[in-house]
Computed example of a mutant assay.
Amino acid sequence: MSKKTQQIAVPLISVVLGLLLGALIMLLFGYDPIWGYEGLFQTAFGSVKNIGEIFRAMSPLILIALGFSIASRAGFFNIGLPGQAYAGWIAAGWFALSHPEMPRPLMIASTILIAAIAGGLVGAIPGLLRAYLGTSEVIVTIMMNYIVLYVGNNIIQNVFSKSIMRTSDSSIYVSSNASYQAEWLKALTDNSRMNIGFFIALVAILLVWYLLNKTTLGFEIRAVGLNPNASEYAGMSAKRTIVLSMILSGALAGLGGVVEGLGTFENVYVQTSSLAIGFDGMAVSLLATNSPIGILFAAFLFGVLSVGAPGMNAATIPPELIKVVTALIIFFVGSHYVIDRYIKPRKEAKGGAAK
């Protein structure tokens, strides 16, 4: 099996193993897995509205996963994506609520830019600390999630103008000019919440793929991820590349946050914990092995599992078991070296046979 084929096979095998082990867990607890999965897929694809909801769920996951993939290509594990997404959501939402009469094209462009800047600034902090002080980006990004969560909640509760607040914890809805939902998409998908964020995500996939594979910066990101010392010796600035990769990672997460905030909920409200889409976006990128194109398909799977989960209630199976299946899939992706043992790349297998 070639290396390229192996990169496709490992995620697919991981998904199959995750579903099979999930079915085994259902059997152990006395549930019928066939009925459960049937209910899941019938719910996910049973109506035009639910299909629209799948695309709606995919949009922020794609953007956040792309952010994680850029950081990973540079050799970093950016766990701060939930905080970066929340920063983008709050900043863009605040702007949209404060300027309700702004023309729609300018409003959409402004909120996209503001969300990217907010997420990028939050991402820059661990990048700078890693580049110039050598601190662990894992520890710093975990801490940043809590900092952004509590500072962001305080801003919503105590800094937002009372005129844009519906309750002490939630703002009013943004104007139609600022909402990412569109009437033509609602009509097309039977009044689902699918929004223009999906198209933003598709454009982002193409841009990130081009960045990583066709530009000098993309080459430097990959080179620094493989060996920062060798990159420095070759004349690249590892410090600059580290900071830029974390800024780009945070900017994409910020876009994921504003797509979720202004596309799904259309307002800003206090969060009780870090955004789940941040962690799910990491899982999507891991399943796709950090491939921009693969992220599209991985996000689709997660969207199907998310939208279809309530259908398991018909089989009296707790929909929370879908979280178990998702975790198992990521476990097998993370344990890909076990799978690699049995599907060696063709060249390596031939080399071993020759020895």
Rank of each mutant, 00 (worst) to 15 (best):
V338W: 13
A253Q: 06
N267E: 14
P228S: 03
V325H: 14
M282D: 13
E266W: 05
Y342L: 08
I221M: 13
A288L: 06
K323D: 10
P319V: 00
P319M: 03
V258S: 00
V243K: 12
R222P: 13
F332S: 06
I277S: 02
E266F: 12
P318M: 01
S306Y: 14
R240E: 08
I293C: 06
T326W: 06
G294Q: 04
R240Q: 12
S249G: 03
L252S: 04
G254S: 13
G294A: 03
A276V: 09
I322S: 06
S274A: 13
G281Y: 01
G308A: 02
F297P: 01
G225K: 04
P228W: 10
N229V: 10
R341H: 08
I330E: 07
G235H: 15
S237Y: 02
A288F: 01
G294Y: 08
A299E: 13
G294T: 01
A251V: 00
P292K: 02
P319D: 08
G278P: 05
I343A: 05
L275N: 10
H336T: 04
Y342T: 12
N290I: 04
V284S: 00
T316Q: 11
I329D: 13
F265N: 12
N229F: 09
V307D: 15
A299P: 05
S306A: 08
G263P: 01
S273N: 11
I277L: 03
K344N: 07
G256F: 00
G263C: 02
A315Q: 08
V258C: 00
L275G: 05
G308M: 00
L255E: 05
R222I: 01
E232P: 11
S306F: 07
M236T: 02
T241H: 13
V259D: 10
G281T: 02
I330D: 11
S306H: 11
G308K: 03
Y233A: 08
N229T: 14
G303L: 07
G235R: 03
S274G: 08
G225L: 01
R222Q: 12
V243L: 11
P318T: 03
I317L: 06
V268Q: 13
M312A: 05
S249E: 07
T289C: 03
T264L: 06
F332T: 00
I295S: 03
E260H: 04
F302M: 01
I343Y: 08
G235T: 09
F279V: 00
D340G: 09
Y342F: 09
I221Q: 15
G235K: 06
V243W: 03
Y269T: 06
D280Y: 11
G257R: 05
T264D: 09
S306N: 13
I322Q: 15
N313A: 09
I339M: 14
V270H: 14
R341G: 09
R240K: 12
Y337K: 15
G256T: 01
G311W: 04
H336D: 13
E232T: 06
F302H: 02
L255V: 07
A315E: 10
A327H: 12
F331Y: 08
G254P: 08
S237F: 00
D340T: 15
R341L: 03
V243D: 02
V307P: 15
T326V: 14
V325M: 07
D340N: 13
T326P: 10
K323H: 14
T316M: 09
A298F: 05
A234Y: 08
S237P: 05
V304S: 09
E260R: 06
R346E: 14
A230F: 11
I247Q: 01
L296F: 14
G278A: 00
P310V: 00
T289L: 04
N290M: 06
Y269W: 11
N290W: 14
